[in-house]
Amino acid sequence: MRPFSYARARTEQDAFSTLAQTARGAYLAGGTNLIDLIKLEVAKPDAVIDINALPLAAIETTPSGELRIGALARMSDTADHPALRSAAPAISQALNLSASAQLRNMATIGGNVLQRTRCVYFRDISQPCNKRRPGSGCSAIGGDDRKMAILGANDRCIAVHPSDFAVAMLLVDATIHLRGPAGERTVPFLGFHRLPDDPSRDTNIQPGELITALTFMPSALTRSSTYIKVRDRASYEFALVSVAAALEVTGGTIRDARIGLGGVAHAPWRSREAEAVLIGKVPSRDLFTAAAEAGLQAAVPQRLNRFKIRMAKNAMIRALTSVGMPA
């Protein structure tokens, strides 16, 4: 760990102006990822600006009926929020399957979306890594790649995004609210996380910007959703693969579908291929199997993780069965 200065921001403007005075300042929310990375010297901020005092922790239903999750809402408060649980059960489930109770009590929703990969080569500064040091190479390729990506990877980076929550958020067409020195903007959640064209960039957030909230409009689709997480042990571990699925079934036909995959790519992975197979069809085991095949069609395994393809397909079939053909 390198020495850094610490400041507590009272307002957003305060945070922006304090950050502007630093060379490599970083915002601190729950700290469950940043502090780790500082200790490992993966992150080397010269200043840490604590934003926990900003009024961004509310979870509320807006007058228009949207659900709004403040960026500083803790994972645990979000998971247990009754409005969220009925609006999108998959999000609630994904949060409760994340980390540990202690971590969920600290970690924030905004921080969760921005958390960095758990790739062991990224987190060990003795190893080359294009994400940490662009151009130095990817040590995960040809190394211990069991947990690495099977979709959307390239020869620069095969790391995966660790968040469960972000995978479930793919189901609800969410909007990310950002505010920075240059003002406010909104971006769709989908597309916020990047594939590793430039591995040093995880997301499209701009320097100095803060996530202030995530919003989405609950619908019949989002209310009929579920999240399945597969891992080596029963709890307290990141996903080997995970699937978030939402189906809107009326009159025995699938009107709309959303499929998200976790643990498989540099970003939470929306499978439009699987969705396309489902929409307009009658739910059946065969249909779900076909969707899973389509969803993993493009998968390219690493040396040690071919199993993830089958595991992801089976997880997708199970998730779809659970929302589409409940027992």
């Binding site: 758990r118 062991v120 080596d232 042990r233 029963a234 709890s235 307290y236 571990e237 990141f238």
Partner: peptide, 11 residues
């Protein structure tokens, strides 16, 4: 202890 796995209570 993130990647060197041992059982947790749930196991």
């Amino acid at each position: 202890l993130e990647n060197y796995l041992v059982p947790v209570n749930a196991d």
